[in-house]
Design a protein around this nucleic acid. Structure first.
Lengths: 217, 217
DNA sequence: AGTACCTGTAGGAAATATCCTAATGCTGCG
DNA sequence: CGCAGCATTAGGATATTTCCTACAGGTACT
């Protein structure tokens, strides 16, 4: 009777099936609905009341983080536990910021998962120690200021050239500056944008239409 | 006890647990061993005889494709079913080429998975229609060859790591190779893809959904 | 059975980029 | 005014990456 009504959202049917089996063994949790993509999640969330949403943020379609925000927007009271295959805890912090109440990777064993589910379903929060540490460090409102607006003029200029594919030496020549200078700018850019490498910078630039994706076909 | 002895290799404990539950419900399949990484797979394969190896090729460490070859090298008779989370069917073709007897994505439902497992375990081959179609197309290149399909396995692997933002030294360490080797691969990748820098590579990868654009907000 | 090409692997030398540090000038604020 | 803080600029020492070259094993075509 008092079973918690769980909505399971994961694009991997096998993972869903497996989880259903696992939850079927418990006496307090029951999978009442499933969703294989973001659109279904939204539908299901609207269709009835749930005690818990277990969400795989690597689902196709819209960004998983957007989805969290969307769901939270509609049902602020619905607890969300993120189940991710990314070991990169980078996502954890972002997910929690976006409104999730817990974050578990698929590397975890199912004991841990069940523990996290119960906790989150009862209004609690679940984060692993590793993630907690990361949060403490990265506590910053993301949705408010877009990082690239923090760049100074020079930095923004260099940023643009970098994501376009120019090397430091090239940029230095172009701007009649020392390579060291450009390197310093690059370091500051990465720092301000909280990124670690050029690849992320390029992806960011594309996501924000700051660079022509090019006709690479 | 004619149950088929299955070795389950997947780095996600939750996925393994789920699959075990599912197989426990059948009367002809039983999970007798598990492996969470490539090294364990090799150990387990050597330790005893198996009827089937279910392998997640996105496992960390050695390339999944290499692992297939390695296992096939030791136990040519052991059927391998690849269970992948990559929707990119790029891997399917490569996996089958490397010696796998079947390829199932985690998007499949468990009926399909069981069917594939039985088939492969009994010496058969399983490919989904989608994969079959891709194979047909891959075998018969029609004028429009996407440049990244020209990459060798190793090159493709390095390509993936590069666009994900890993540096050469990092990749070299990860793969236990010389940095020079990785550098050579990178040079060849850029050459084959007719590109001049990492930025273009990243843009290409995003355009072709070969990399997670990431939730960079 | 030969040869030509591709793949995977590196070494040494050279180019490029980073790390740490710091000087200069500018701007805003008490 | 004076100082704190950011922007812009580099130097020296280091680290990383590239360039050019090479060699061995495989495949494929002749």
């Amino acid at each position: 009777m008092g079973k918690l009504q769980v909505l399971l959202a994961d694009d991997h049917a096998i993972v869903r099936d497996g989880l259903k089996q696992i939850l079927a063994e418990t006496d307090d949790l029951s999978v009442v609905g499933e969703a294989a993509n973001g659109i279904e999640v939204v539908h299901m969330v609207r269709s009835r009341a749930w005690d818990l949403l277990v969400l795989d943020i690597s689902m196709p379609g819209r960004s998983g983080l957007d989805l969290i925000r969307l769901v939270k927007d509609e049902q602020p009271g619905l607890p969300i536990l993120v189940l991710s295959m990314h070991q990169e805890e980078q996502y954890a912090v972002r997910a929690l910021h976006a409104g999730a109440a817990g974050y578990v990777t698929k590397e975890s064993d199912c004991e841990l998962l069940l523990h996290a589910m119960r906790r989150v379903a009862h209004g609690g929060v679940y984060v692993s120690e590793k993630v907690a540490e990361l949060m403490a460090r990265a506590l910053r409102p993301i949705g408010t200021v877009l990082p690239h607006t923090l760049l100074s003029d020079r930095e923004y200029q260099v940023f643009g050239m970098l994501v376009q594919g120019h090397g430091l030496t090239e940029i230095a020549t172009e701007l009649s500056l020392s390579v060291k200078t450009i390197s310093t700018h690059k370091t500051r850019i990465l720092q301000k944008m909280e990124m670690g490498n050029l690849s992320e910078l390029v992806r960011y630039a594309i996501a924000h239409h700051l660079v022509d994706p090019g006709d690479l076909y």
